[in-house]
Amino acid sequence: MSEKEIKNLDEIFEQRIARDEKIEPKDWMPEKYRKTHIRQISQHAHSEIVGMLPEGNWITRAPSLRRKVALLAKVQDEAGHGLYLYSACETLGVSREELYDQLHSGKAKYSSIFNYPTITWADIGAIGWLVDGAAIINQVPLCSTSYGPYARAMIRVCKEESFHQRQGFEIMMTLAQGTPEQKEMAQDALNRWWWPSLMMLGPTDAESVHTAQSMKWKLKRKTNDELRQQFIDQTVPQAELIGLTIPDPELKWNEERKSYDFGPIDWDEFWQVVKGHGPCNKIRMEARVGAWEEGEWVRDAAMSYAEKQQNKKTKQAV
């Protein structure tokens, strides 16, 4: 194809997206669109499956049977969400195994928040309430993103995710209304998870490299800072309702903006964790790589068995 022809196709493509038409796997798409989508969707998928680990850490120790089954179902959902997203990514011509390689070799990123440890039961509440809360804010707009398979996966994810945040909030509420020890546990978890949750919505707009292009392709509908403000505005009253204190002395309602003003975020910490220096980067990756490597003989066995069965069938047919 000549450069002129590509430019023409490019224009038609951008017009389709501007008209809110969906792009489907076999449609022509600019290489950059394909690459950007592989990057974002796979990052999203990786985040789901790495995110299983900090929460999975408490399944065996959940304090009641009701909490245990709910947490188990939630972590299982995350595996499902990872699966839907990897499948969406595969429609762009990349295999799940290639995507795993990128994750395991450290080439691909995942949400940094999962590099923080879950050290008490209240952390499970805080993750559900804050981390899933922030994730939902990020994800809901993606249900109408331009790439069809991604949008469809997100619709399914958002539908299933609706119980996750409720579950987290209920855990926090129960603790906050419980004994002094429980309340302290809840407050401590909020103190540790608040700032990482704010960081989770991404670098400030000034530093965000992908925003403009992502907006155009509807991979993003609002900027990181807008999403962060939305998250703070909706979460602060929830904390007040259950009697917990947001660990930000500068947090104040701004009557003029009808929003909360908040203190500075420690972006240095954010970038350190992204670069691999978070408290759990290493053990998270070891767990993922370990599961994959230890599972190899199992996956091989299934393929070998399938092949033998297929051969038997063929022979019988002859």
């Binding site: 699966l83 839907y84 499948s87 595969e90 799940r96 469809r152 996966a153 399914r156 996956r299 299934a302 393929m303 068995y305 399938a306 069965q309 297929q310």
Partner: peptide
């Protein structure tokens, strides 16, 4: 509904 990976049709 979507897709998945499996070694054979039963799986």
């Amino acid at each position: 509904f979507g897709s998945l990976h499996a070694a054979d049709e039963a799986m």
